[in-house]
């Protein structure tokens, strides 16, 4: 059973609280990215590229038992680490929870500069893209129910 989205948010905040300075925090982010593994080459395609990124970010998604599964990758290590945190946060959650929950942990772990919509690393674009997928799945599920 996947943990509750709010619990995950708290876990991430607690994890970073234990780290003493920016070097440790960034090292932890880099490690998250290293642990993410790489996305299958078949999913590293143009249509999965998230726009607005200086580094490349690919986002692949599927719906399984009413939960949205996200897989992602990046060619830059810090971006990949941030992407890994987003996947950990949102993947396996219901469309409803994804739409209604913002990644407030980003600010609490001192990474808010990366979420600025004007920043060209595109973490904000990625979050937006994840929510768009969730909305699309929600609509699809409602239509499915209406038919049944």
């Amino acid at each position: 059973m996947m943990a509750d989205i709010h619990e995950i948010q708290q876990q991430i905040i607690d994890e970073f609280k234990a780290l003493s300075d920016w070097t440790e925090r960034y090292k932890h982010i880099i490690k998250q990215g290293q642990n993410l593994g790489s996305l299958d080459e078949e999913h590293k395609v143009e249509e999965n590229l998230v726009r607005g990124c200086q580094s490349q970010v690919w986002l692949h998604t599927e719906l399984e038992d009413g939960k949205v599964i996200f897989e992602a990758d990046s060619d830059a290590a810090i971006t990949k680490g941030l992407v890994a945190l987003m996947v950990r946060f949102y993947s396996g959650q219901t469309p409803e929870d994804i739409i209604n929950t913002d990644p407030t942990f980003i600010k609490k772990i001192g990474m808010e500069q990366h979420l600025s919509p004007t920043r060209s690393n595109g973490l904000a674009s990625m979050v937006k893209q994840m929510k768009i997928y969730a909305m699309a799945y929600k609509t699809k599920m409602q239509k499915g129910k209406a038919k049944a």
């Binding site: 070097t23 960034y26 580094s55 830059a76 810090i78 971006t79």
Partner: peptide
């Protein structure tokens, strides 16, 4: 081995402004 944006981000943490991209 390291992407330019990663170098730029860590330099920014040290008060050093460069451009990447």
């Amino acid at each position: 081995d390291i992407h330019a944006t990663d170098i730029g981000t860590i330099l920014d943490q040290q008060g050093i402004a460069i451009r990447t991209g």
